[in-house]
Design a protein around this nucleic acid. Sequence first.
RNA 1: GGCGCGUUCGUCUAGCGGUUUAGGACAUUGCCCUCUCAAGGCAAAGAUCGCGGGUUCAAAUCCCGCACGCGCUACCA
Length: 486
Amino acid sequence: MNKPLPRVRFAPSPTGFLHIGGLRTALYNFLFAKNQNGKIILRIEDTDRKRFVDGAVENLIDTLTWSGITFDEGPNVGGNFAPYLQSERLSIYQEFTQKLVSENKAYYCFCTPERLENLREEQQKLKLPQAKYDKLCLYLSKKEIEEKINSGTTYVIRLNVLPDQKVFFDDVIRDRVEFETNNIDDQVLLKSDGFPTYHLANVVDDHLMEITHVIRGEEWLSSTPKHILLYEYFGWMKPVFAHLPLLFNTDKSKLSKRQGDVAVEDYRAKGYLKEALINFVALLGWNFGDDKEFYEIDELIQKFSLDRVHKAGAVFNIEKLNWLNFEHLKRKPDTEVLKMLRTELENSEFSKSNYDDAYLLKIINVMKERVTFVYEYITKSSYFFKTPEVYEEQNLKKRWKDDSAELLKSLKDKFQTLVAPSKEDYEKALDETAIQFNTNKGNFIHPLRIAVSGVGEGPGVYDIVSIIGKDETVSRINTVINKLSK
RNA sequence: GGCGCGUUCGUCUAGCGGUUUAGGACAUUGCCCUCUCAAGGCAAAGAUCGCGGGUUCAAAUCCCGCACGCGCUACCA
């Protein structure tokens, strides 16, 4: 007998943007599905109308698409188990809730929010070990229930949790986890607005959509016994559960907006590559067991397994992400970097200038090992796009000598005699001038760097000069001499 | 408060009872290379494996207790 191929789902709620932790959960689901030849489904859990944010679904899908995580079924691609928006499945939840009610596994509750709050306060005052609903409405007669419903009293439907029993499940990542029903509240399944809570909708949909593995964040671990109870009440096969460790801020608190960026779109906007973000987030809680840290998505798919996900939460550390971005960018083909650079240029102060591919490719070639982000091709080496406007103070102090202007002038004269010079020609010309003046090459090189770039760092000076060309070099030497020899 | 989960260098992690003087990566520092900055190479520093008890010839690895952290404790997900 062949085991059916796994079906997993990523089920975010559309409250604004894709959280970086959500990306990790989506990714692990994706990697697991692809590795196992299974299917991954996108389901939108929009059951809380108060928290619904307009455009959030589109934003979620857009960000997911950008990241390269694709779905076999979902609101945007359809599928045999549609609809994939929970708000469009309301009648399904109501039907299943009625089934539970008819079997006494769930019950109507007419308690007001005020009573519930008072109840909680009282329980706290009495220092009761756990605050729970007191099952008051469980004992209402059929007649009383009908009267209340007919008179228009609002109600919810609660799960009827039986006392003194044990509930357990075997989590792939955490092994056996056990709870006592005495610690489980009679969870609301259907809210007074007719919408289901997460707990109900999640179980019903996972069953209906034939989900085999529930891979989600650890924040759900404590509510899993409620889900287990529901599976048992319905008489359904339970999926395999895998609860992923949480992602933390630097201070170990749950990753949150207050301490830096948590939205995937923020990282995208900052210029991070999806490859780097995926690589980084994949390693936050999983590794293959060797020393490899640089991964492309294909290899991740090939090597991923749930049993190598570990249990402890991880701090989101941006420095390693930066390094991975650098590595991924460095290994990208020049032609691809060229495309990205063009996009950056369009959004920069140089949007009106025209640069041919050959020119930009030369820049990419010499800057590749010096940039972490594509935009740094522009910010770190703006001198390829415009004449330096300022000359770095510190560098000037160190490298601009009394005779620099005079030496540069001679060098410029020498350069001007060159015909279609190559990088080597510039080097040779500088060498000869240095010999002619019987002085160190450095006395030419450093001032020349100042003249052409304005800064004390960057590619080899012959590279810069040969890229910007003879005329531009001569012009920049003239400019620096004018500005600095007063 | 209750329940649950977790705890190896600053951070991400390797490690599944002996091959470990606890390995790698990022970050940090130094050296080499060098026209600068990177990249690259080499090296240093950094974890008595949360703490305390056991079990064992032998424990980061198994067991128990404690501490700390985190999560849940809503008609939010």
